[in-house]
């Protein structure tokens, strides 16, 4: 278990101040709306602005972390002793970007969510399935390699198995 600065501890003072400011803003908006006798349209707009901002901030925080921490550099790399670019990851990445990008663009243009035909869903499923099968084969090989290496090391050291040594 790591003992990070905020693991299991109370929020720090600056975090508390930010939370209090956000709560005060929300209460202020709600109070203003009640005082002015807000209509359903106003409430919908305020609600959308509040929740839309929260979702946008979530997305911004994730994207910021991904970009700042160089986390995206491993998006096509197969983890292991010698990280290697994976073609199944690459093709899934390409199809996801293409279909998601076009869906977003057409939805914005149409002003409504556009339909996704079965053949396109099949394409996404095909690339996802290839990735899963590829990952399964790779993992299976790695597990077998670890077992073989462990067995070889045990034979070389001429030691009893772990089960015998554990009391």
């Amino acid at each position: 278990m790591s003992n990070g600065p905020n693991n299991g501890s109370a929020p720090s003072i600056p975090n508390l101040i930010v939370i209090m400011i956000i709560l005060a803003v929300i209460c202020g908006i709600a109070g203003y709306a009640l005082h002015r006798g807000a209509r359903p349209d106003d409430i919908a707009l305020i609600g959308f602005t509040a929740f839309g901002s929260v979702i946008l901030l979530f997305a911004a925080a994730v994207v910021w972390q991904l970009v700042r921490e160089d986390a995206l550099t491993g998006i096509v790399l197969e983890p292991g002793e010698n990280p290697k670019a994976s073609l199944s990851r690459f093709q899934m990445l390409v199809f996801t970007f293409v279909v998601a990008g076009l869906f977003l663009m057409l939805s914005i243009e149409a002003g409504d969510f556009v339909d996704i035909p079965a053949s396109v869903l099949g394409l996404i499923g095909l690339s996802g399935g290839t990735f899963v099968v590829s990952k399964g084969v790779t993992t299976s090989v790695e597990v077998q390699k670890i077992k073989t290496d462990t067995e070889l090391a045990r034979i070389k050291a001429n030691q009893p198995s772990d089960d015998d040594t554990v009391q």
Binding site: D115, S119, G122, L126
Partner: peptide
């Protein structure tokens, strides 16, 4: 404007598969 994403041709889907 388009109401739906275009269909992927079956031949291309088959080639990819």
């Amino acid at each position: 404007h388009l109401e739906s994403l275009p269909e992927m041709p079956q031949e291309m889907l088959l080639a990819l598969g």
